[in-house]
Amino acid sequence: MSLEFSADARKKINDLLQKYPSSKPVVLAALHLAQKEHGFLSDDALKLVAETLSLPYAHVYGVATFYTMFRREPAAKNILRICTNISCMLRGAYDVMAAFEKKLGVKKGGTAGDFTIVEEECIAACANAPAIVCGTRYFLDVEPKDVDTILDELRKTPRPEGEIV
């Protein structure tokens, strides 16, 4: 099945093409857009990016599989990026992670309803550890007891990562 970009995405890509000397530097942005519009980067989505930018499929595949934010399978609209790196770990991030896993009934990496749990590396919010980022929303100084409040807020106001692409 061949995929297409929306008119809005095509305009964004064309605008970006004016800012670089060739099409290759636009590949990350085009992959972000393809992921937003098609949910994840299927083979067809990679083909779409390759054709749109006149790049070899193998190059696009190589780039898409290098960066952790690019997904080869679907995810929920809220991606909970829970940091467990050193500063967050020292203040209980693994307890926070366990609380989310228990509440959602799924292990990290998994999806349950509107939420996908990702164990994230340092998200540069160390002074407010443990920290979680979901799209443009940061949850800071999180404790295991905050799980319900956080999930309720995101059910009411989802923060899909595609929001700012």
Binding site: N85, I86, E121, C122, A124, A125, C126
Partner: peptide, 11 residues
């Protein structure tokens, strides 16, 4: 690209 663990100033 601030991502060195323990660093949160540039953000």
């Amino acid at each position: 690209d601030e991502s060195e663990p323990g660093t949160c100033k540039d953000r």
